[in-house]
Amino acid sequence: MNFTKTTEEPSKYNHLEKMTVKELLTNINQEDKSVPQAVEKVIPAIETLVQEIVPKLKNGGRLFYMGAGTSGRLGVVDASECPPTFGVPYDMVIGIIAGGDIAIRKAVEFAEDSLTQGWEDLQEYNISKKDVVIGIAASGSTPYVIGALKKCNKNGIVTGCITCNLHSPMAREAQFPIEVIVGPEFVTGSSRMKAGTAQKLVLNMISTSVMIQLGRVVGNKMVDMQLSNHKLVNRGIKMIMDEINVDKTTAANLLEKYGSVRNAINAYKDEKNQ
Rank of each mutant, 00 (worst) to 15 (best):
T4N: 14
K5E: 12
T6W: 13
T7M: 14
E9I: 04
K12C: 01
A38D: 10
A38W: 04
V42R: 02
Q51R: 06
I53T: 13
I53G: 09
V54S: 05
V54R: 06
P55Q: 08
R62S: 13
F64D: 11
F64K: 02
Y65L: 05
Y65G: 08
T70C: 12
S71H: 05
G75L: 11
A79S: 14
C82Y: 09
V93A: 07
A98D: 05
G100N: 13
A103Y: 02
A103V: 08
A103R: 06
K106F: 12
V108T: 05
E109K: 07
A111W: 04
S114L: 11
S114R: 08
Q123K: 15
I127K: 10
S128R: 01
V132E: 01
V132N: 00
V133K: 07
Y144M: 03
I146T: 11
G147E: 11
L149Q: 01
K150T: 15
K151H: 13
K154H: 08
N155S: 11
I157F: 03
T159H: 04
T163C: 11
Q175V: 06
F176S: 01
E179P: 00
I181G: 00
G183S: 10
P184N: 05
S190C: 05
S191V: 15
M193Y: 06
A195N: 07
A195P: 09
Q199V: 04
V210C: 03
N220S: 14
D224N: 15
L227A: 00
S228L: 14
S228E: 09
N229P: 12
H230D: 07
R235C: 09
R235L: 06
M239I: 02
D242F: 07
D242L: 02
I244L: 00
I244M: 00
V246Q: 13
T250E: 10
V261E: 14
N266C: 04
D270C: 06
